[in-house]
């Protein structure tokens, strides 16, 4: 589904190389985790895949079901089925959460040539999804992420994911800033969305999240490259021993 080959990326503003040749293949139905020390390029990878400004692709390819992601606008990538759950969800004063969700859902439907959801259809759908994530009506009415707690923001990301039904979900440190209960709630939300046709790329620092969202493959990223891939046991190794041994091994 997601196919990344030799991806090299620099920061646009300064001559600094962040990704130095990333290779990654995620198949439909799989959950992959990327772990790695701070500054290894994990978040950059998620931003480059979703189309954020400020990065320069120096080489390599990234495709989603064969379509060239790097050639698309961010909204086209979203309509093609890519979703990024932000590490720091953005607050948008003045835009109601409900308006935001409905605009996004219908924009994607429109881009895919589907009929837009009516207000009634949308409301029914959003209420059901929100309930599963313990998001109350009040939170849906408030401006997007404004005044939300850390946990509420992350649950709101999962709600968007549930409503947009993407096929490739990237979760960028979704566990950061969450207490144990909130993490469980978010993980349950993600697990409920796991399906044969959908894949996940979970970026995290900690094994803890992976106790709840069980990965098929774990990758270790360091200095702009994936230096090792393996099964879930790799995450446990990191948890117990840190990155030092793996990094030394890679050098």
């Amino acid at each position: 589904m997601l196919n990344i080959k030799g991806l090299k990326v620099d920061l646009e503003e300064e001559d600094k190389s962040i990704l130095k040749g990333v290779d990654l293949e995620v198949n439909a139905g799989e959950v992959h985790a990327i772990m790695g020390p701070n500054g290894s390029g994990k978040s950059t990878l998620s931003y480059v895949l979703s189309g954020k400004d400020g990065y320069k692709v120096m080489g390599g390819t990234a495709t989603l079901d064969g379509a060239d992601l790097l050639d698309m606008e961010p909204e086209e990538r979203a309509a093609a089925g890519l979703f990024l759950a932000f590490q720091y969800p953005v607050e948008i004063p003045g835009v109601g959460n409900m308006t935001f969700l409905r605009t996004a859902v219908n924009a994607q439907r429109k881009a895919r040539g589907q009929d837009e959801l009516t207000a009634g259809e949308f409301l029914k759908e959003v209420r059901a999804r929100a309930k599963d994530l313990k998001i109350d009506a009040e939170m849906l009415k408030r401006p997007v992420n404004v005044g939300f707690s850390g946990g509420e923001k992350k649950r709101n990301e999962i709600l968007q994911m549930a409503m947009l039904e993407p096929k490739m979900c990237i979760l960028d440190e979704t566990d950061s800033g969450l207490d144990v209960d909130a993490m469980k709630l978010v993980a349950d939300g993600v697990n409920a969305l796991r399906s044969e046709g959908r894949a996940f790329l979970v970026i995290t620092h900690y094994q803890r999240l992976l106790d709840h969202i069980k990965p098929d493959v774990v990758h270790i990223m360091s200095n702009g490259r994936i230096i090792k891939s393996g099964g879930p046991e790799l995450a446990l190794e990191v948890e117990n021993n840190g990155y030092a041994d793996l990094l030394a091994e890679a050098d």
């Binding site: 954020k52 909204e75 979203a78 953005v90 924009a107």
Partner: peptide, 26 residues
């Protein structure tokens, strides 16, 4: 940041800009 957030959810740039403009006037 807000513009990218909206676009990453599939809202085209022009529509996202208008939404943020109306939010500013709200």
């Amino acid at each position: 940041e807000a513009l990218f957030y909206l676009r990453s959810r599939g809202v085209p740039e022009k529509q996202a800009t208008n939404l943020l403009t109306l939010a500013f006037l709200a």
